[in-house]
């Protein structure tokens, strides 16, 4: 089921934009997603499910998820967001979030997300063992799962991760939580991408720290895609009245 997705991914070299659903408000988050898609800034959207304890996130995304939680955003709202976006433009949308809110009503949530048109899931605190345990369920609901590879992942583990990845490989660019960085070690990232590709020609996208068009371009040069999140959230946070033009600056 993922063959077409993989082929298109590698051909398109997508920019993947993370948005926290419900930040700054639900309807604005939908509008921002539509804006990103219709202007060609994003080819894939990550719909962020807010969580009370986002351990892998830096200040910017923490802030946005707190606002979303105050706005009462639940998985059902994330499903609605995906549905609205899919009816606007048929692009792949991944639900991204920590495991507990998904696990809390696992089958119900998977069904809900599948019905919304979600392509798959990205879960930063799931382990390979648990992916194994839920793979049959994910298959049943037709949802893909992305595997994470970090700069310090050894080859043995990389093999295990690649073997269980039905979506794309999310290559974490550097040590640290999500957030904008000035510098990434592109040479070492190029090596990691090659190692992953040596195991299987799975699509690989680089995320964490990417903040502008130049970095997006570099990421795509050495991998199949670029993931950007905090920079966009930061633009929304800092310019509540004119964030569209601020977002535009990131991609130009």
């Amino acid at each position: 089921m993922n063959k077409d997705f993989w082929d298109t991914f590698k051909k398109t070299k997508p920019t993947i934009v993370y948005l926290t659903v419900g930040f700054p408000t639900y309807s604005e988050s939908v509008e921002i997603a539509k804006f990103l898609v219709s202007n060609g800034y994003a080819q894939i959207i990550e719909a962020g499910i807010p969580f009370s304890d986002p351990i892998a996130d830096g200040e910017v995304i923490q802030y946005s998820t707190q606002v979303a939680l105050k706005n009462g955003i639940m998985i059902d709202d994330v499903a609605k967001f995906i549905e609205e976006l899919k009816s606007f433009r048929d692009i792949p949308v991944f639900a991204m979030g920590y495991y507990n809110p998904i696990y809390a009503n696992l089958e119900r949530n998977l069904e809900k997300l599948k019905k919304s048109g979600a392509q798959g899931l990205i879960i930063p605190d799931i382990n390979v063992e648990e992916i194994e345990a839920i793979l049959p369920l994910l298959k049943e609901y037709g949802l893909l799962i992305c595997g994470f590879v970090a700069p310090n992942t050894n080859e043995k583990r990389m093999k295990e991760i690649v073997r269980k990845t039905t979506g794309f490989i999310y290559l974490v660019s550097s040590y640290g939580t999500t957030g904008m960085r000035d510098y990434l070690n592109w040479e070492s990232l190029r090596n990691i991408v090659q190692k992953v590709k040596g195991i299987e020609n799975v699509p690989v996208a680089i995320g964490f720290g990417i903040k502008n068009a130049e970095m997006i371009r570099k990421a795509k040069e050495i991998s199949d895609g670029a993931i950007i999140g905090s920079a966009v959230i930061n633009a929304i946070k800092n310019s509540p009245s004119n964030y569209f033009s601020e977002i535009e600056k990131i991609f130009k």
Binding site: N127, E130, V149, A150, T153
Partner: peptide, 13 residues
């Protein structure tokens, strides 16, 4: 139990 952690922590664990 288990290990539900971001990938970057796995090697150090």
């Amino acid at each position: 139990g288990g290990k539900y952690i971001p990938e970057v922590l796995v090697p150090v664990i």
